[in-house]
């Protein structure tokens, strides 16, 4: 995982659950099959109620219709991002759609672990609520070394929480790579 992620921002609110990230009806695709895996990208964030999809205006698609990838590199969320089911398809879907990091006030624990252990997206906590500080389609620069995110439109820079021990797993690219690097496997 590179240390600076630069790209477009998609803003979501509080309690975005895994059914919103990837609705249950698509879970019969097998993520281990490369031809099927890309469909998780197609349907990423498709369960968002339109009014809440891409704040502040809403009504924005995370991935263009019939596309497999979207334009958004970073999601800015509120509290309890990724709550609900344990489906690893959720961070996987975000990753397939081209997203590389989620910056939120807090994360549900299974989503957080899945994001890190599977090496899909970097889940980064912000002490300050950023939902109102970014608008969907703003450009951002997320620096995972300095632990800051900059809104390139407003030029404002926000300090993020240190990731702690899990940063080593993120840097390695997931729990298997981490375990191999540390001769645990």
């Amino acid at each position: 995982m590179s240390e600076v992620i630069r790209g477009r921002v998609f803003v979501a609110g509080d309690n975005v659950d895994t059914d919103q990230i990837i609705p249950a009806q698509y879970l019969s695709y097998n993520p281990s099959d490369p031809d099927e895996r890309k469909y998780f990208g197609m349907y990423a964030m498709s369960g968002m109620p339109p009014a809440r999809s891409g704040l502040p205006e809403g009504g924005k698609r995370f991935v263009p219709k019939d596309g497999f990838k979207g334009p958004y590199a970073v999601i800015v969320g509120g509290r309890n991002f990724g709550c609900g089911s344990s489906r690893e398809h959720a961070p996987l879907a975000l990753s397939e759609a081209g997203c590389r990091a989620v910056v939120a006030e807090s994360f549900a624990r299974i989503f957080y672990r899945n994001s890190i252990n599977g090496g899909y997206v970097a889940p980064v906590e912000t002490p300050e609520r950023l939902v109102g500080q970014f608008a969907t389609d703003d450009e951002a620069e997320l620096d995972l070394a300095a632990m800051t995110i900059k809104n390139l439109r407003t030029k404002r820079i926000f300090k993020l929480r240190a990731i702690g021990e899990a940063a080593k797993i993120i840097q390695a690219g997931g729990i298997f790579k981490y375990a191999r690097q540390n001769r645990m496997l």
Partner: peptide
Amino acid sequence: TGIGNTEAAFVLGT
């Protein structure tokens, strides 16, 4: 407790 696929695969092996 609930875990994801990657963690479950890790447990399956180890």
